[in-house]
Design a protein around this nucleic acid. Structure first.
Lengths: 133, 133
DNA sequence: CGCCAAGTTGACGTTAGCGTTAACGAAAGG
DNA sequence: CCTTTCGTTAACGCTAACGTCAACTTGGCG
């Protein structure tokens, strides 16, 4: 388990998540992360690290930084009244529906690729027989 | 079933797949589609339509046009020797692995959202009790 | 004939998401 | 003291994927 009080430099996080420091600074510029400063150096804590994790994960999913921002906001709701909570839940449901739709696209795409592969394998089998014959 | 010999205008396809004519022309510029011409007008056939379908599907998945190009090539293999076929199969497997990885990311993301939602619902329940109490 | 709707070809503009210098500061080591 | 090794800001550059004109043609239609 990652120590809750741990601190990280920009290059440490960059290495861990395989992104450039420049990218991390960019996320900060657009307000996705807000690390502490010691002098003018950035110091990242566990929460910052989680945010970055969500961002890179979103990237692997093809999400835009704005979409990742929404997801991050869901994690850091801290909503303290019912209205806020319901708004939050709606947002989560919406995002989940988007992802579900994406998941279905993905599955149908995988199905198509399976079929294409099967056809190729069949063609390959035929060509093998032709060679053998 | 869509008539194999059907023809479509650019705006017909644009409407069907909810993209702009400009976008379709762009796909042509980068060599993803190559419709016939009647005079200077573009006429799309069933195969062109399928290609467009693959492209928009890829877009919903967050694929780049170059990645979609690869997938399209898989469908239109026409590989006629064993070496080509094996190369094709490798390409398909690679793409499938990419998509599989994406699918796993997606599932873990959905899991997180479920959890976030559950926590929100719980908080909401507490606030309800507070109101009721 | 006049005109509109749908099509065409440039060509420049725009947004996202960083990459890439440039120019500099501060700590660590030989 | 000099040189790496991180770090910093500022600013311009770049690719992808179109959007957005402009300027024009073409086929009906009243």
């Amino acid at each position: 388990m990652v120590d809750k009080s741990r601190q990280y430099s920009i290059s440490q996080l960059a290495k861990e998540f395989d992104v450039t420091p420049r990218a991390i600074r960019h996320y900060e510029q657009i307000g996705l992360i807000a690390p502490q400063r010691v002098g003018q150096n950035r110091i990242y804590n566990a929460a910052d690290r989680i945010r970055l994790k969500l961002i890179v994960r979103g990237k692997r999913l093809g999400l835009s930084l704005e979409q990742s921002r929404e997801i991050i906001n869901m994690y850091e709701h801290g909503a303290n009244n019912a209205a806020q909570l319901e708004t939050l839940i709606d947002a989560i449901r919406l995002q989940r529906e988007r992802l579900q739709a994406q998941l279905e696209e993905l599955n149908s795409m995988l199905g198509d690729l399976d079929q294409a592969e099967a056809e190729s394998l069949e063609a390959l089998a035929h060509s093998d027989r032709a060679k053998a014959g």
